[in-house]
Write a protein that binds this DNA or RNA. Structure first.
Length: 496
RNA sequence: UCCCUCUUAGCUCAGCUGGUUAGAGCACAUGACUGUUAAUCAUGGGGUCCCUGGUUCGAGCCCAGGAGAGGGAGCCA
């Protein structure tokens, strides 16, 4: 017999603790309840704003200061962790519907509020800049903004798993450490146990990685795609969702050295199927977040409005965050080929008036950020899927089109963020794949395991990579990718 | 990696043409008030003006170098 035990933490008075999110539903009115959390603010020597992270909303706990010891009152400071027990009553004040009339307070952990003392709690009951909060990333979860961001991040991660699970995809854990250096997705971080001061040398006087831990040079993965394709050739539909590493010296609001990526890979999908799945997935997870984190997203939407009040009119968004998300859900993504995009850009007044830094003239060059932004934010004003890029600016594994010039690639561009998804139908024909690898000087002997998929029961298949943090940026309306991952890793920064 | 901007109180920022004792709001401390919602009112404390060097009678302000941060570009997700 399977027994399910409902575990709830108890406190010393043997009261069952209730989470603030549930308390605020008001169903326990006139009952004695216990709540534990961190003090956000203590007003008027009476009103504690308490938050336990379960909701953006605080619970107001009302202390009768005339009947409470001064030594206790002085310890109710921002950041302190307390347990309060009392009766849940309808609030006499306007800001909340229910509140706790406190009968008992237990202080778990004090928090120094005097800003002049060296051990003072760095979060004051006032607004802080995102840059400052980034320096205290270990405490920023306790703010409204970051509380909301990381609850939404969680929901999006869960929704992604739910979406693929409901469609019968297998979640495949691809390796973090790889020996493959042929993926070509970017600079890699080396993984080694060799002594950097005195590495073993080969006869050619180079570092001898045969003596390294794995007997060969290894790196942190830049993509799980190639391994994902192996899974798709057995399970039909797989996806990966894990950390990915790029040692690029990128200093932008859209890049991290360590980020999380979702990479589905589907047998029997062509490019159109691939695009349809990507669009369906994005709309599903955004809907899921709107349904399950409504208050957080409303808060973030308001936060963005307040922030943009300080900007000149021209720099403000036309739509609020909520409007932008709903607009994205209510409209088909624009779908055009690279060639059509070049035509639109070339014929645009923007190009004719030479407002682009890079003037569009011929066919074949990669689009610059300014061109992508023009297409998404000015021309279509909604997400755009660009397909069929010139083969020379794309990866070796993308399926070659009949025209001999383009490949079956797709990039999904989002307003304000740029590329959020990159994908393609894969080249399933062994000979064409090998020829392309030779043309691009990709060593085929290192990737025999990959080419085996094309030798043994190859089939049309496709997949894409979604940058998880870029999705979180879009849904939360945050503008710097360092603010949507708990502990960002970027060039020259690996704190915490 | 390249370009631009910034660095002044715990935080967010002002600081005039280089001029004598460094400014505000918030936060904090003390007191008053006691149904507050960024509480309010009064009083008070708090400064390596990022660092190093230079110009000058005199530098927070000008110059050079360095460090850190932000924005943009490239690379990409």
């Amino acid at each position: 017999m399977l027994k399910i035990i409902n575990f709830t933490p108890q406190n010393s008075t043997n009261m069952t603790r209730t989470k603030i999110k549930d308390i605020l539903k008001g169903t326990q009115i006139n009952q004695t309840v216990n709540v534990k959390g961190w003090v956000r603010n203590f007003r008027n020597n009476s009103f504690i704003a308490l938050n336990d992270g379960s909701s953006i909303n605080n619970l107001q706990a009302v202390v009768d200061f005339e009947k409470t010891n001064d030594s206790i009152l002085k310890r109710i400071t921002p950041g302190a962790c307390i347990s309060v027990t009392g009766t849940l009553v309808e609030s006499q004040g306007k800001g909340q519907s229910v509140e706790i009339k406190v009968s008992d307070i237990e202080i778990y952990g004090d928090s120094e509020s005097d800003v002049l003392k060296p051990n003072a709690y760095p979060l004051q009951p006032k607004a802080h800049s995102l840059e400052y909060l980034r320096e205290i990333a270990h405490l920023r979860f306790r703010t409204n903004t970051f509380g909301a961001v990381f609850r939404v991040r969680h929901t999006l991660a869960y929704a992604i798993h739910k979406f693929f699970n409901d469609k019968g995809f297998v979640y495949l854990h691809t390796p973090i450490i790889t020996s493959s250096d042929a993926e070509g997705a970017g600079e890699m971080f080396r993984v080694t146990t060799l002594d950097p001061k005195n590495p073993p040398l080969s006869e050619a006087n180079e570092v001898d990685f045969k003596q390294d831990f794995f007997g060969k040079a290894t790196n942190l993965t830049v993509s799980g795609q190639l391994e994902g394709e192996l899974g798709a050739m057995a399970f039909s539909d797989v996806y990966t969702f894990g950390p990915t590493f790029r040692a690029e010296n990128s200093n932008t609001t859209r890049h991290l050295a360590e980020f999380w990526m979702i990479e589905p890979e589907m047998a029997f999908y062509d490019l159109k199927d691939n695009m349809a799945l990507a669009e369906e997935m994005l709309k599903y997870v955004i809907t899921y977040a709107l349904e399950n984190n409504k208050e957080d997203i409303e808060f973030l939407s308001q936060r963005l409005l307040d922030e943009e009040k300080n900007k000149p009119q021209a720099d403000r968004s036309e739509l609020s965050l909520l409007e932008k998300l709903n607009f994205c859900l209510g409209n088909e993504f624009a779908k055009i080929t690279y060639t059509e995009a070049i035509d639109i850009l070339r014929e645009s007044n923007h190009n004719k008036k030479k407002k682009f830094q890079y003037i569009i003239d011929g066919w074949g060059a990669d689009l610059q950020s300014e061109h992508e932004r023009y297409l998404v934010e000015k021309h279509f004003k909604k997400p755009v899927i660009l397909t069929d890029y010139p083969k020379d600016i794309k990866s070796f594994y993308m399926r070659q089109n009949e025209d001999g010039k383009t490949v079956a690639a797709m990039d999904i561009l989002f307003p304000g963020i740029g590329e959020i998804i990159g994908g393609s139908q894969r080249e399933e024909r062994l000979e064409k794949l090998e020829n392309r690898m030779n043309e691009m000087h990709i060593p085929t002997h290192d990737l025999q395991w990959y080419l085996d998929t094309r030798r043994f029961g190859t089939c049309p298949h496709a997949g894409f990579g979604l940058g998880f943090e870029r999705l979180v940026l879009f849904v939360t309306g945050m503008t710097n990718i360092r603010d949507v991952i708990a502990f960002p890793r970027t060039p020259n920064n690996c704190e915490f």
